[in-house]
Amino acid sequence: MSTLTDAPSSTPSPPPQQEVVGAFSTWLADGWTVTWRNLNKIKRSPDMLFFAVLQPIMFVLLFSQVYGGIIEIEGSDYTNFLMAGIFAQTVVFGSTFSGAAMAQDLKEGLIDRFRTLPMNPSAVLIGRTNSDLALNSISMVIMIATGFAVGWRFTNGFPSFLAGVGLLLLFSYAFSWVMTLLGMVVRTPETINNAAFMILFPLTFISNAFVPAASLPRPLEIFANWNPVSALVQSARDLFGNTPDGIVRDTFPIEHPIVTVFVGVAVILVVFVPLSIRQFARTSSR
């Protein structure tokens, strides 16, 4: 088994590429390797892919068909009104996966393995959030298709439509970093899911995602108007051309939803990327 090690004769020279390859491209390569690994997981566990595909279909159908008949939005068709909300809800929930997967990797000792390798420490986190962006993109495509099937139409032109989709994915990407940190702190995949639901259900439901904020009881309406998810939904709704005429815009986030989303994304990334990297550098299994 002389192939296993070359211990006695060798000098501790790092692999030659180490010097040649710059720090930046190393970081890119490491990030890509971990992304590749995570994407393989999506490919190899059909159950995961199945739910990633089915859940968005279910949500679109459920809300548009169940509530479509009861909820009336002045100046708009409910399906058209709903779609931006359902997209936002699904991608925000999709980011939970980052946390659960991180906790799972920690539990299985994979984080320990990564941390004893001479790789760029942030690559694991980059790989994590990248692959969740990919998963969320798949969900997005499926939801758009299902939306079309139930009669949803965007009316503001194709570039605006793309911008809306991009904004939704950008926000979900930023949110993945929050969940990644949470995954390393909470450490149990099951708890992550429960905790995320506790936070994300109110965050997505006390918003303008499913009904106009004005129709909520006053305290909830105030919350909804300042809720970043509302700004996200409003941005997408505006860009899709699905905003009903009578909508009240009396708070900054609703008045300037796109600016708000960009500021929100920037704040989340500036705070949570360094925090996650710091936490990763001192996280070890059990």
């Binding site: 501790p12 790092p14 692999p15 180490q18 690994r37 393989n40 997981k41 490919k43 190899r44 566990s45 299985e108 000792g109 994979l110 320990d112 393995r113 004893t116 001479p118 299994s285």
Partner: peptide
């Protein structure tokens, strides 16, 4: 770069 480490739990990606 010069060590190899194997932890208490087999750290392998199942997928």
């Amino acid at each position: 770069r010069i060590i190899g480490a194997s932890g208490q739990y087999a750290a392998v990606d199942e997928n």
